Structures are given as structure tokens and as C-alpha cells.
Amino acid sequence: MQTHDVLDELWAVICERAENPSENSYVSSILTHRKGVDKALEKVGEEAVEFILAAKNQVRERTVSEGADLLFHFLVALRASDIDIDEVLSELAGRRR
């Protein structure tokens, strides 16, 4: 599976959970939390710190794992903020020179 396929699939699942919340879904629990978008942002902050520490300590396996966690929670926070990933990707594409 290609990298962009994984991101597309993950984004589709996040959006599906947002539109059809489920009690058993971790994504739904974040998106429907009483704190609103703040819960998703807390998770991004938490995962960012864990990623930074792993990278700083040069623990490759942990850095990869925490990087995946950070990317996942970033995507959930985008959805919680009602921002489509295509907007972010378009912004990145516009910055290429």
C-alpha cells in the first residue's frame, strides 16, 4: 500500500467516525468529547511532546511510533476543527518552489 493510500484511508475513517459516531470508536470519543476541539488539541500536544522526546533521545523505533501517533491525532484535530486535509495539502503544494 502506498503512503498516500494509507493517509487517504485513515482520513476517510476519521471522517466516517465524525459523521457516524460510535461508542466503541476512539476517534468518535475524541470528536464528541465534552471539551470539544480542545480534547483533540490536547492529544496533539501530548503526542508532540512524546515525539520530541523520542527524537531527542534518538530512539528510532519510538520516534517512528510517536510520529505515527502525532500524525493520527493531527488528522483528528483537523477534522475536529472542520478543516479538510485537502486544504492543508493544497497549502503545502502552494509553498513548493
Rank of each mutant, 00 (worst) to 15 (best):
S29M: 10
M1E: 06
I14R: 03
D69P: 02
L71F: 04
L31M: 06
E66N: 01
L89S: 09
R95Y: 06
V76A: 06
K56P: 02
S90T: 12
L78V: 05
G67H: 03
I52A: 13
R96I: 13
A68I: 14
A77I: 03
A54E: 04
V6I: 15
L7Q: 03
D8M: 08
I85L: 15
K35A: 14
V88S: 04
V27N: 06
A93E: 14
I30W: 10
D5Q: 13
L89M: 14
D82H: 13
V44R: 03
E46H: 00
K43Y: 03
L31A: 06
P21A: 06
L41K: 14
E23H: 02
R34G: 03
L92G: 08
K35E: 12
F74A: 12
E19N: 11
R62Q: 12
V27Y: 13
S65D: 14
L75A: 14
E50F: 05
E23V: 00
D8P: 01
V59L: 12
E9N: 11
I85T: 04
L31S: 04
V44A: 03
S90A: 15
K56C: 10
E66H: 00
G36V: 04
C15I: 09
T63L: 10
A93N: 09
A18I: 01
L75Y: 09
W11V: 06
I83Q: 10
V76N: 07
